[in-house]
Design a protein around this nucleic acid. Structure first.
Length: 441
RNA sequence: GACCCAUUCGUCUAGCGGUUAGGACACAUCCCUUUCACGGAUGCGACACGAGUUCGAUUCUCGUAUGGGUCGCCA
């Protein structure tokens, strides 16, 4: 199929945060535009003055940017089909209303509200996702398109803007499918042809109910706060309702855009699976460079009370545990001991260790051996530990857990040699001494 | 209530008349291993129900049930 210049839009109203469903709608529009070499337009539907807020506007733009969606036309991007705020497009609406009035498609109520006279003919919505959807001639009351105060109603401005902005494909939530015949009726009244439609399924809660504002994972912002990487959320959201024809699921946005085909989007709602989203996050976390990982983890380390700048090997420390976590906030508990020497000791482990009196001598032997190491590399440290093991007639496996506990106060973590290497020779000595004194003393 | 969309393992899905119904996440077991993980292997596990059409239905049609959506001077 030849690439035709397509124009799609995401049209949020700034009355709240960026909803995960909205983000996915934007995502599919973006994928479609990028796939077809077309334009992705952002239009702000701020006709409801009472509910619009500046904060919401910012949250939506920030959310789109965070997840990595750039728009070709719209707020802060410009474009020759502006303005991109409906609040600034009244002249268009007035002009279109005049056309409708001139052609006898409207009538005015006593209070001043203007209604559009439905054609009351059967209407077929041709939908890329749902196929041909037939609507019988309606019996609903005619649709109000302008309020008595002169402001316009969503259905009207939405249609006018799509015509004026030369939108070729309307990709939006399935919640709009039932009203699409009204839009087509209006478009016909303007003497225009409707765009192609693609109504995408909704995202539901894990229990199958509608995802509402207070539900977990409803806002894009919450993913940022929960320590998700935007690339992971992007990837996961794409796979909710659409399957690329590949054997892999982890795909970068460029590949996803290349593979995207709107007609392959499902027509059934999908439930959000936070666990799988976290799995994707773990995948993306692992391929971060040490520097990128440090940058991503820093806010969470700071809020956990760690002075990132105080430990020179912070990036390497994070690198040593990154395959153990799936979300950024899990990181601090794995690396906290790198940043301080007064870390707590896990209580139940202390009991076990003190039960064996020989542990103290063993650990002191390790300290002595390590203090004599010149090559403080992981191999040098490992060699020293093996030396102690041989001297005492035990396996390294008998020493390693003990040393791990001394260095971190924990029973889990990175490789022991790695830990010792990163904290340095002197700190290793102090940590062992403190353990002997406080725990095994 | 009317209309619209949908219904394959717990979840996301592949399938587009004939398959041992495939994969991913999760879960279980095993291997690897100084811990925790990663990784590898194996296992568990599904066509909502009822009628048709057909030699044959997960696949096509209709109905029922269930879920979601829409019927605003919200968007």
């Amino acid at each position: 199929m030849p690439n035709s210049p397509v124009r799609v839009r995401f049209a949020p109203s700034p009355t709240g945060y960026l909803h995960v469903g909205g983000a996915r709608t934007a995502l599919f529009n973006w994928l479609f535009a990028r796939n077809r070499g077309g334009k992705f337009i952002l239009r702000i539907e701020d006709t409801d003055e009472a509910r619009n807020t500046e904060a919401s506007m910012k949250a939506i733009l920030d959310g789109l940017r965070w997840i990595g969606l750039d728009w070709d036309e719209g707020p802060e991007a410009g474009g020759d089909h502006g303005p991109y705020f409906q609040s600034q497009r009244k002249p268009f609406y007035d002009a279109y209303l005049a056309k409708l009035e001139a052609s006898g498609h409207t009538y005015t109520e006593e209070n001043g509200a203007v209604r559009f006279k439905f054609s009351r003919q059967p209407i077929v919505v041709t939908d890329l996702v749902c196929g041909d959807v037939h609507f019988a001639a309606t019996e609903e009351p005619d649709m109000t398109i302008r309020r008595p105060d002169g402001s316009y109603i969503f259905h009207f401005v939405n249609v006018v803007d799509d015509i004026e902005m030369a939108i070729t494909h309307v990709i939006r939530g399935e919640d709009h499918l039932s009203n699409t015949w009204k839009h087509i009726d209006l478009i016909h009244a303007f003497g225009k042809h409707p765009p192609r439609y693609a109504h995408i399924p909704l995202i539901l809660n894990p229990n199958g109910t509608k995802m509402s504002k207070r539900d977990e994972g409803a806002s894009i912002e919450s993913y940022q706060q929960a320590g998700f990487l935007p690339a992971a959320v992007f990837n996961y959201l794409c796979l909710l309702g659409w399957t690329p024809r590949t054997d892999k699921e982890k795909l970068d946005r460029h590949t996803l855009a290349t593979l995207f085909d709107a007609s392959e989007i499902h027509s059934a709602n999908a439930r959000f699976d936070m666990t799988k989203c976290a799995w994707f996050n773990a995948q993306y976390l692992r391929e971060l460079t040490p520097e990128a990982l440090l940058a991503a983890a820093s806010p969470f380390l700071k809020s956990a009370g760690h002075d990132v700048a105080a430990f020179p090997h912070a990036a390497a420390a994070l690198q040593s545990v990154k395959e153990k976590v799936s979300l950024l906030p899990e990181l601090p508990s794995w690396v906290h001991f790198f940043f301080r020497e007064d870390y707590p000791f896990e209580g139940d482990v202390v009991t076990k260790l003190t039960a064996k009196p020989e542990n103290k001598a063993l650990l002191q032997g390790v300290a002595a051996q390590l203090s004599a190491v010149d090559d403080w590399s992981e191999t040098g440290i490992t060699a020293a530990i093996e030396q102690v093991a041989a001297t005492n007639g035990v396996k390294p496996g008998a020493i390693l857990p003990l040393l791990r506990f001394a260095l971190s106060g924990q029973t889990r973590g990175p490789g022991v040699a790695t830990m010792a290497h990163l904290v340095g020779k002197e700190s290793t000595g102090r940590r062992i001494a403190r353990t002997c004194a406080e725990v095994l003393g």
